[in-house]
Amino acid sequence: MSAPGPPARTGKRATVHDIAAAAGVSRGTVSRVLNGGYVSVTARAAIERAIREVGYVPNTAARNLVMQRSQAVGFIVLEPHTLFLEDPNIGGIMLGANAALSAADYQMVNLVVDSERDTARITRYLSGGFVDGAIIVSARSHDPIIQVVGGLALPSVFVGHPRDLHPEIPYVGIDNLASAEEITRRLLATGRRRIGMIAAAVDRDSGADRLAGFQRALGPLFDESLVAEVPVYDFACGAKGMRTLLEREPELDGVFAAADSVAAGAMEALRESGHRVPQDIGVVGFDNSSWATRTRPHLSTVHQPADDIGSHAADMVLRQLRGDPIAERGLLLPSPVVWRDSA
């Protein structure tokens, strides 16, 4: 007579009682094994075999309810939905954060804020305890989300450094001002003197700092009329900003675009207008994203370590959740210039 096989699956979730019955032990003994407690080697082996037989899966939702934890961290992006898909840096930060959270057995929940309605909805979501912490990307000055997160005392970290940053929330990013200054000086060193900037997203810290770095590098050569402000870091804004600069200054010989996507749009507008890069106009960008090597010629730019930024941001949230001290108020990662052929 053959040995009996595992019980037929009925669609009902197996319970601790089912394991105890299959293993021939008490429910208390099963609970000790599931919670890492001590039992005899024989009992443990019987329980582990029974778990496989009955197809037991831990009820994480119930466990988290008892612990008052969701085991999830929100990844909040305060950008238009289209930019969330187009900007490789946001994707890199997201993947870096997700890898670190996954390794700690946390689920990442993506939350995109593109309107006042989104802000209200996500405010309710955060207040409802659906996430244990938050990583906040591209917060603008006086953004309502900053006040919400601060008021909830939710373990959080900013990617970037908003001017009105909540004093108890740490941040991780790069030195946008110093990096913008360095690449502008490199552009100046090629002999350019009528240099303009396509300044994107100046309503947040990254855009404002890149503009400030550009101005500092140029010093007395800075001409406010050669700054074309555009709302976001995208290709279309780059093309529009480049056309604006060409209309304002026919003798333009250099351009600093506030992001690689913006620079790619600028280079397309230059090609359409008959200008050669770099022979007529040198172009530099910022981010060292996939855009930088899709342009022809390849783009001189600043390297932004997006994956590392995301990983460090997730680590800061996890440390807060564990109750570990965070020594650094803010963390700035290296962002060197990568020089290629566009200037």
Results as ranks from 00 to 15, higher is better:
T190H: 15
S156N: 02
I146M: 14
V148K: 11
P167H: 04
R186V: 13
E182K: 15
I198T: 09
A153I: 00
A153M: 02
E181V: 04
E168R: 09
E182D: 15
S127W: 03
T123I: 06
S179I: 02
H161N: 11
A180V: 01
D132E: 09
V149D: 02
F130G: 05
I136Y: 01
A178Q: 07
T190N: 11
R185A: 15
A189N: 13
D175R: 02
I198R: 08
G196Q: 14
I146N: 13
L154P: 02
Y171I: 04
R186H: 15
A199R: 03
L165D: 03
S156Q: 03
F158G: 02
D164G: 09
D164H: 07
V159W: 00
L177G: 04
I146D: 12
A178W: 01
G129W: 09
R186S: 14
M197Y: 08
T190L: 12
F158K: 00
L188K: 09
V148E: 11
I146P: 06
R193T: 15
A139M: 09
R163Q: 07
S179R: 02
G150P: 10
A134M: 04
T123R: 10
I174P: 04
G191F: 12
F130M: 11
L177R: 15
R163S: 07
D164S: 09
S141V: 11
G133F: 06
A134N: 06
R194G: 14
R185M: 11
I145W: 05
M197K: 08
M197N: 11
V157Y: 00
N176S: 07
E181C: 09
G128D: 12
G133M: 12
S138H: 01
T184L: 06
A134L: 04
D132R: 06
T190M: 13
I169K: 01
Q147P: 02
L165T: 05
P155N: 04
G151N: 13
G129R: 07
I174S: 04
R163W: 06
Y125H: 04
G151K: 08
N176A: 09
R140G: 05
S179W: 01
G196C: 11
I183H: 04
I169M: 01
I174R: 00
V172C: 02
A134C: 10
I169S: 03
E181I: 00
D143I: 05
G196R: 12
S138A: 12
I183R: 08
G191C: 13
N176T: 02
H161S: 12
F158L: 06
L177M: 15
G150T: 08
G151F: 08
G196T: 14
P162F: 05
P155S: 03
E182Y: 08
T184M: 09
G196D: 14
A153V: 05
V149T: 01
G196H: 13
V148M: 05
R140V: 00
G191S: 14
H166W: 03
E168A: 09
